[in-house]
Structure formats: structure tokens, C-alpha cells
Amino acid sequence: MRRKWDPGTKARIVLEGLMGGCVTDICREHGLRPGLYYKWRGQFLDNAHTVFEQDQRPVGPSEIEAENIRLKRLVGQLTLELDKDGGSGR
């Protein structure tokens, strides 16, 4: 059965090697084939520049919920305005 690695663990393992750790020892410690380590390292290095791109900050659940509440209030306000105007759209 294949082991599923989460992205954070992959990054930590790759960084161990990039910071001078012995890849053979790192792979042995984590039960990982060296070929897979090098594949991850390649992916890591190919995508490292995205850290510095704008608007790449992940949105957390609390931010999504806050935006959801704000939008619901806005829809409610607009609905009240339409009802007050008689729904004519003018």
C-alpha cells in the first residue's frame, strides 16, 4: 500500500536535504525512496517562485465566513432598498 504524504511533510523533507542533510539518511529516516525525494525536490524548486507572487495567500475558513456574512448583509440591504422602491427597479 502506498503512503500518502501531505504537502507540509514533503516540504520539510525536501528542505532537510536542501539545507545540507544527507539525502540517503533523510530517505532512510522517513522510509522514502531517493528517486521520490528528487522528484519532490524538483517540484519544490520549480514552484518556489510562486511564494513571492501576489494574491497567493491562502484564504482561511474564518476569512471566508467573514466575507460570506458581509455579502449576506449586502444582499439584505439591496433587497430592502428594492422593496422600499416598490420593486420597480428605479
Rank of each mutant, 00 (worst) to 15 (best):
W40G: 04
V51G: 07
S62K: 11
I64V: 09
K39I: 08
W5F: 05
G87D: 02
V59R: 07
W40Q: 01
L45G: 05
G86I: 02
R3A: 07
G42A: 06
D6R: 00
L15V: 05
E67P: 15
T79Q: 15
E67M: 12
K4Y: 12
R90T: 10
C22D: 11
K4R: 09
W40F: 06
G76F: 12
C27N: 02
R70M: 09
R3F: 13
Y37Q: 01
T50R: 05
E67V: 13
D25L: 07
T9R: 02
G86Q: 04
R28C: 03
G35W: 00
L32E: 03
R3I: 07
G20E: 02
S62V: 11
E29L: 08
P7L: 06
D83Y: 10
K72H: 10
V51Y: 09
R33E: 08
G35Y: 01
Q56M: 10
K84P: 07
R41M: 08
G89L: 08
F44L: 00
A48S: 11
D83C: 12
Q77C: 13
I69P: 10
V23A: 15
W40M: 03
F52Y: 14
L74F: 10
Q77V: 14
D83R: 15
R57L: 11
G31I: 03
R70Q: 09
M19Y: 15
I26T: 02
N68E: 15
F44D: 00
D55S: 09
V75L: 15
V51K: 05
K10N: 01
R70P: 12
Y38G: 05
G17E: 03
L78P: 15
E16P: 03
K84A: 13
D25I: 03
A11N: 05
Y38W: 06
G35I: 06
G17K: 02
L78V: 12
D55N: 11
S62Y: 14
A48C: 09
K10H: 01
V14Q: 00
T9W: 06
E29S: 09
V23S: 13
G31W: 01
Q56F: 11
Q43K: 08
K84M: 11
Q56G: 12
G20V: 01
W5G: 00
Y37A: 01
H30V: 00
N68R: 14
G86L: 04
D25T: 06
F52P: 04
E65A: 14
K72T: 14
V51N: 07
L80K: 15
G8P: 08
S88L: 09
D46T: 04
T24C: 11
E67K: 13
G42V: 01
N47E: 07
D46I: 05
I26W: 02
Y37D: 00
D83I: 15
L78D: 10
R33K: 13
L74T: 14
M1G: 14
G89H: 07
E65Y: 15
D85N: 14
L18P: 00
L36P: 07
L18K: 00
D55T: 12
E16L: 02
T24E: 14
K84H: 13
K84N: 08
Y38Q: 07
C22M: 11
Q43T: 07
E16D: 07
V75Q: 12
K39H: 13
G8M: 02
G87T: 04
